[in-house]
Design a protein around this nucleic acid. Sequence first.
DNA 1: ACATTAAGTGATT
DNA 2: AATCACTTAATGT
Length: 217
Amino acid sequence: MNAQEAILREKLNEYYSLVFEKELIEEIVNVGFVEKYKSGETLIDIGQNMTHIPLILKGAVKIIRREKKGDELVLYFLEKGDTCAISFINCINRKESIFKAIVENDTEAIFLPVEHIDDWLAKYKSWRHFIIDSYHFRLLEMVESIDGLAFQNMNQRLLKYLVDKAKIKQDVNLEITHQEIADDLNTSRVVVTRLLKELHNEGKVYSTRSKVKVLEL
DNA sequence: ACATTAAGTGATT
DNA sequence: AATCACTTAATGT
């Protein structure tokens, strides 16, 4: 047993010992590897081929859908204990990614080569559940995202975005410009400025240049 | 002090 | 809610 494997086993036991059976953890130790990413790095872009799927250990990853012209929209965030089951299907089909993934907070993840994950589906009940649960959860988040687009006004979407972001960062003090928010919500900076001012006056946030403090979680 | 970047505002669609 | 055009404020060099 080398040092790499020992580290991997330790991390798995820390985060996934309740989720996966022992044999599966051993398999993961054999084929997986840990990677670290800094905030702002692109994990995968639309059109790239997926060769591995991630198990997030630490940090958060932002999942974005992008239109050809460059318009972007944040769909959801992946956090500790999450995987992107969408990436799983992409993997077994050997298809290109339909999303872009950007590291939100510094992230550490175990990467698993695609060729094993299919076998494990048949072999391990815990793996099956993990993948199905993950799929279910992503679907729910996607529905939430659609609801936001279809039924909510910008005002509510903005507040939800800020609250989500504060939760993920574990800090109500966000360092973000109006322009960046506008990009994530696919709206204009002017609109964000005005709505943010409303929220500010309502006492829900406190905002200064390049900073927003979320007052209501 | 000056240039750059972020934010605020009124008018128009 | 988006866009334009313009102003004002904050920040970096």
